[in-house]
């Protein structure tokens, strides 16, 4: 299934709960303030990298650009545009947004 996180990992526990809940083989899409987790040097970068063994991780390009962090994306994160966002939603039968 697809997991979506839109909160900063240093402001809310949404990413932590998501990573602890998500089962191997799923996908994680980071949007809005959630994209900060996918930036180099962020305190959450380590656990996100660790999760990549089990989850495919995507981040919305427009949200990274808006925050000035598009040039510091963590290795292993796949940037997607809005079309890619829609594709991810349709490719997965279920979707959980960790609001």
């Amino acid at each position: 299934m697809l997991h979506i996180v839109n909160k900063s990992p240093l402001d809310r526990p949404s990413l932590d709960t998501c990573l602890a809940t998500a089962q191997p083989g799923g996908a994680l899409l980071l949007i809005e303030d959630g994209v900060y987790a996918a930036t180099t040097g962020n305190a959450a970068a380590g656990k996100l990298t660790q999760a990549m063994g089990q989850l495919k991780v995507y981040a919305l390009q427009a949200d990274m650009e808006a925050r000035g962090v598009a040039d510091r994306v963590l290795d292993g994160v796949t940037p997607v545009d809005y079309g890619g966002f829609v594709d991810l939603v349709t490719e997965h039968t279920t979707c959980q947004s960790w609001l």
Binding site: S8, Q61, E65, A66, G68
Partner: peptide, 16 residues
Amino acid sequence: DDGVYQLKKGFNTKGI
């Protein structure tokens, strides 16, 4: 806290 991100250089908000 996350307030420091307000000053992170290089915003480009066209996409959002």
